[in-house]
């Protein structure tokens, strides 16, 4: 399926709006689970958007903007996953793997942008010197606008202008490559989860990880909610233990691996 100029423009506008939230982290509209269905709906293919949203969301579960690091870009990756699945007619796993380089590209651009904005600090100091509060708001406005425009340019070029080239590329791929890319799509969520574990896992939490894994391996569930409730039970036990210990004056330093 082809993306028309009109579709290219409305996708670009949608992404530019979502990019504002990506920067401000206000409503989490920049997450794949929101972005992909929106893009899918705009292309008249909500179902692909939903399925892509589920896959990409999980892959990005650990790829977060924690600690001021610019992560691979979720909006562009989600958008391109839906666009490529729609235009090439391939599965979302393979589309996601092909979309990943676009996410990396946006990541580089975002890093550059966040470096360029260092120049705003001097300007802000000058406004503070003159007690010019309006000036500070003006900087915020330009900061948001510039970011949004960059996304617009990247997405319009990637989704609309480059679509023929992408389609030709996919058509030229041999069977083992498309299958390999789908397999990779099923593995990439593991890297997201490993990134979360890297931050969260200490020896004391290993039992909970194993419990969650066992539970989901052997019990049929429609979604992950039962595991969440089990996690809540563990957290309550931890809380009561800790408060009891605190009452008895037991010191627990919480060190692990």
């Amino acid at each position: 399926m082809e993306i028309t100029l009109f579709q290219g423009i409305i996708i670009t506008i949608a992404v530019m709006l979502l990019a504002i939230d990506n920067q401000l982290e206000g409503f989490f509209l920049f997450r794949p689970i929101i972005v992909a269905p929106i893009i899918g709906a705009l292309l008249g293919d909500l179902n692909t958007g939903l399925i892509a949203g589920g896959l990409v969301e999980l892959s990005f579960a650990g790829i977060t903007a924690v600690g001021g690091v610019t992560p691979p870009n979720a909006i562009v990756c989600s958008t391109m996953t839906v666009v490529l699945a729609h235009t090439t007619g391939q599965g979302v796993e393979m589309a996601f793997t092909l979309a990943y380089p676009f996410g990396l590209l946006m990541q580089q651009i975002a890093t550059l942008y966040n470096t360029v904005l260092v120049a705003f600090n001097k300007k802000a100091e000058k406004y503070a010197e003159k007690c010019n509060v309006k000036g500070l708001f003006k900087l915020c406005f330009y900061g948001i606008l510039g970011n949004s425009l960059l996304y617009g340019v990247v997405v319009f070029l990637s989704a609309y202008v480059a679509q023929d080239a992408m389609r030709e590329l996919v058509d030229a791929l041999p069977e083992f490559l498309t299958h390999g890319l789908s397999v990779a799509g099923g593995l990439i969520p593991a890297i997201g989860f490993a990134m979360l574990l890297r931050v969260m896992l200490k020896a004391r939490y290993v039992p909970y990880l194993l419990a969650g894994f066992l539970f989901a391996s052997f019990i049929q569930m429609n979604n992950i909610l039962p595991v969440a409730i089990m996690g809540l039970i563990f957290a309550l036990l931890t809380y009561f233990n800790e408060t009891d210990n605190a009452a008895k004056g037991v010191v627990n330093d919480g060190e692990g691996i």
């Binding site: 194993l210 969650g212 992950i224 595991v227 969440a228």
Partner: peptide, 8 residues
């Protein structure tokens, strides 16, 4: 962490 085990 419990959730992560389930997600894996």
């Amino acid at each position: 962490v419990t959730i992560l085990g389930g997600l894996i």
